[in-house]
Design a protein around this nucleic acid. Structure first.
Lengths: 255, 255
DNA sequence: CGCACACTTGAGTAATGTCAAAGAGTGTGG
DNA sequence: CCACACTCTTTGACATTACTCAAGTGTGCG
């Protein structure tokens, strides 16, 4: 019961998921399971959870959450990269976070979303209707606890980002950003010197509170100073991690 | 059971002149109750909760949470104003939030605090030991849910602050700040044109990602333009709220 | 091949930061 | 009660970072 967001061309779509979709077991195949809310679910709860789940895939650059719309769904990203952002009336944009496989999305305070979410790459997510999920959570305290943990983590990350936005220079911002990406690669057990960099310079700028020009110039500066490489194929390679750590102004050791 | 966090060490409780002796039920007298986590507690739970509670008062300018220390406690502010902040190694400071009566503090992801907290004014709070509180929460799902709601609200506020820090000008920042303070006065049913302003210019600067000089100049600018008054006695009076709303660049109507 | 788009580079500007000093309010001791 | 010291705030002059505007380069795609 794969649902394509905004009628594009994917096979296998069935009419409507108005009722509960009966997939064999979507969670069984979910590679993001161990990373996410679902990690706190036991066998029994996972089966229940699966019944609330609608797997969806969206193409790159599609906005699938818009600020002001009724917050009827929660999301669990299972593949790809998502940007979460807010807009000022005149169009200025602040990206509040990039989400990856395993990340949870949709903790909303009100009845409408206060943010937008857009696929940076092709994305898959599991979608939960809010009401049934909330009821389910009431009966699965472990998962509710897990959600609180997730929220706490996000809060800590948000505070770190505030330090970056309010007090760091362009060099420090970009160095911090690259190191966080590298850190994530390491957690996934992948080579930490070539982080994925699927987002545009403009997105990086909107995340770091800069302009694309400043981001570009700072990349060039880092390259000129031998701290990074910028392969034509895209992406980035970190050549001098400890120097970047020093620049980033973070307290963390160069782990 | 009232504890003064003043002295260098904090051994046993030491009643001080002027300190109110501990009531049999500290929560009964708590004016912040309806605002806080405790709002979700019923009679029975409230009694249990009271047993976990240590009311504490701290003098202005005392730091009572330091980053890196074991996160053994959670806090519920009952009186006064607290600033929560992070430091960069070279001393640059970013205040991530001001807390008021009813606000909850201490959602920590790790075993150590990732932030500092300092009393801006004389402050009272209820302190909970983490372990027992967590156990208690496991048995009081309503309160756990409440905590998740609180975390969600904070997350939304943090995102809003990221927009401010990353994308707003000095004028927009200060106008937004004043309006948030006014909004809070309104919620409390107090006159919304004279928000409390107990924090220094330096604190405001560290909250808005500016310098004290820029904050001061922007205040002066607003005064010159007839948008605010700056009484010698301190504080501020908003004279033209809708103009401030326009400047703030926020979407919210001038409610 | 040529168009579109993302990225880079350059030149000049504007907003904010830095450094310095002068009020202004507060508390202390003579 | 005044003089002094201290802190916070304001104001001024100047410096600098990052932004704006503009053009140029490269890459992918139709």
């Amino acid at each position: 019961m794969k649902e394509k967001y905004a009628g594009s061309v994917l096979p296998a779509a069935q009419p409507r998921p108005g009722a509960i979709p009966p997939p064999p077991d979507p969670c069984a195949a979910c590679s993001a399971r161990v990373l996410s809310v679902c990690a706190a679910a036991d066998e029994h709860h996972l089966k229940q959870l699966a019944e609330l789940t609608t797997p969806v895939e969206v193409e790159a650059h599609r906005t699938f959450i818009m600020a002001g719309e009724p917050a009827n769904y929660l999301f669990n990203i299972t593949e790809g990269v998502v940007k979460v952002y807010r807009l000022l009336p005149d169009g200025r944009q602040q990206i509040t976070g990039f989400l990856f496989a395993g990340d949870f999305l949709g903790l909303a305070t009100a009845n409408v979303y206060a943010f937008n979410a857009e696929a940076v790459t092709p994305v898959r997510y599991c979608r939960f209707a809010r009401k049934p999920l909330e009821q389910f959570l009431g009966e699965a305290p472990k998962m509710e606890r897990q959600l609180l943990t997730i929220a706490s983590n996000e809060l800590a990350a948000a505070q770190e980002q505030m330090v970056l936005l309010g007090r760091k220079t362009a060099r420090e911002k970009l160095a911090s950003f690259l190191l966080v990406l590298a850190q994530r690669m390491k957690r996934l057990g992948k080579p930490a010197d070539t982080p994925d960099l699927p987002m545009s310079r403009a997105d990086i700028a909107d995340y770091l509170g800069l302009t694309t020009e400043t981001v570009s110039r700072t990349f060039t500066q880092f390259r000129t100073q031998g701290l990074i490489e910028l392969p034509k194929s895209g992406g980035v390679r970190l050549k001098n991690r400890s120097a970047l750590v020093k620049i980033s102004g973070s307290v963390e050791s160069a782990d």
